[in-house]
Amino acid sequence: MLTSSAVIPPPASLVPLAVHLRAARLVYAGLTLFDRLDLELIGGSFTCLLGPSGIGKSSLLRLLAGLTPPGISGELHGGDGLPLTGRVACMAQQDLLLPWLNVLDNVTLGSRLRGERTDRQRALELLVRVGLADCALARPDTLSGGMRQRAALARTLMEDRPVVLMDEPFSGLDALTRLRLQALAVELLAGRTVLLITHDPLEALRLGEHILVMNGRPATLQALPDLPGAPPRDPGDPAVQAAYRAILRRLEVVA
């Protein structure tokens, strides 16, 4: 059996990849959610996108993921000028684990869908990293919500893509589990270009190297000043608290 001290060699594919989105436009039911929206993600950085529900955050994420919903358009490419297709991994609020597969088979789903050889060794190592070494053969419905989301994180890492898009991945969890998983995500996603959507300002302040606020209609993006210190930040940190108050003021003005 593997121990938690197992060393994972850094994946070779991990060259930081920036993301450029220009002139994104989303019209939904006759309503322009955003228009001429530009988004730049710095390669290898952790960015949080903060905004109220219904503002179009998830649609923006789907655009980046290549799941273009009807009524959305925009010019999207990586920092090397090539399309992002096949270089993005996603993690959603629902764990989306397949209930008929055990955890290990869920983690290796991507390779089977692509018809590639499955690297079970690496999957097991990732399960050790997320603390699920003993649950590799368990069915998802026997796991708690936090464990299921850990499995989803392992599946996301297994994809080994330079860009990781996360849509409120921790919002369904209880507070303590959330704090632990946030720290784990920051640790394991280091070196990748991450965009995490959240409506929780504190989560954005805890995790984001850069924080973008999305609001208004049509929605616009504004960058908040970067906070000192490396994520995951302590929610009790005075700088975090001050920034939290500032964000609340800003959101209230718009609402």
């Binding site: 799941l67 397949l98 869908l113 692509r114």
Partner: peptide, 17 residues
Amino acid sequence: GWLDLARVMAPADRRWA
């Protein structure tokens, strides 16, 4: 959600998979 996940993981021509 499962179809979206599959779409991000694998190219569009992997419909049978």
